[in-house]
């Protein structure tokens, strides 16, 4: 923890990733990733929604309401994936003491929280016509609600300290401890009796019609690209805020 950047710098001398662990070096790279991701997100969303709404047929059991799946499942997956990514960067920050890792972690959290809200909201609106209720306290739904609260707790804790370094470390702990909730969400439909249906997508065997699955996977990549773009934008803002004293940031504004 007390390792200074200089010491770490010596330790990793010559490794390519070290160069991009510097906020100043990663700032322009993040900008390029952001632009590419916005474009990908828009194109994939148009294609995915077109297939999902104008090519995929009506579901034999559920009728048209199943079309919520094209955003419900991608949002739920992204809520879990972003949490894991956040925990990964928090751990990297704790171990290596890299400033950029904590910023990455902070940049992901709000988008992850939004994904959790979307998963819960669309799940409620899908549950009402198919299960007869907006909400039940079953394992899948409850653990996803806990995921949302973990995001909120993380964001609140990161912002609660005047000393940014304390906030970085305290929130990193929430990210790490809360990560155990992600496998609980994922396997909840197998471990407990739940109203929520089991996984319809498994490696090798999926229970969905292939055109529906295609649309859902394209939408998943669209969501993924959107989340990357939003996180990169937020990361660049964080870099500007935290490096405001440096010459290169001052040169960004005229």
């Amino acid at each position: 923890m007390a390792r200074t950047e200089q010491q770490s710098n010596d330790r990793f001398q010559g490794r390519w990733f070290w160069r991009y662990a510097s906020p100043a070096a990663f700032y322009p790279v993040a900008g390029r990733i952001e632009k590419l991701s916005w474009a990908l997100a828009a194109i994939l969303a148009i294609v995915g929604l077109y297939i999902g709404f104008f090519r995929a047929p009506t579901d034999a059991q559920q009728g048209e309401v199943y079309r919520v799946i094209y955003i419900h499942v991608p949002a739920a997956w992204m809520a879990m994936i972003i949490y894991l990514a956040m925990a990964f960067w928090a751990a990297t920050g704790l171990v290596l003491g890299t400033r950029l890792s904590f910023m990455m972690s902070h940049a992901l959290a709000p988008t992850g929280a939004i994904m959790a809200v979307i998963a819960l909201w669309t799940g409620a609106l899908w549950g009402r016509p198919t299960w007869g209720t907006y909400w039940v306290w079953d394992a899948r739904l409850t653990s996803t609600l806990i995921l949302f609260f973990l995001y909120v707790g993380y964001i609140a804790l990161a912002a609660a300290f005047d000393d940014k370094k304390k906030g970085d470390r305290a929130s990193a702990l929430i990210a790490l401890v809360g990560a155990v909730n992600v496998p609980i969400i994922y396997f909840s439909v197998n471990w407990w009796n739940t109203l929520h249906q089991g996984s319809s997508v498994r490696p090798g065997s999926s229970s969905m019609a292939s055109i529906m699955l295609t649309a859902m996977l394209i939408m998943t990549f669209a969501f993924w690209a959107y989340c990357v773009a939003a996180a990169m934008h937020r990361l660049r803002t964080q870099i500007i805020e935290r490096e405001a004293e440096t010459k290169w940031v001052k040169e960004l504004v005229k």
Binding site: T58, G63, E64, V65, R67, V68, I71, H72, A75, P110, T111, I114, V117, I118, W121, T122, L125, W126, R128, P129, Y226, A230
Partner: peptide, 23 residues
């Protein structure tokens, strides 16, 4: 109309749209 389920389908997509615009 979404087979009579328009409220649930568009309520979901509408919320997503609002969330994205807000973000």
């Amino acid at each position: 109309d979404m087979g009579g389920r328009g409220f649930f389908v568009w309520g979901s997509y509408g919320a997503l749209l609002i969330a994205i615009v807000a973000e």
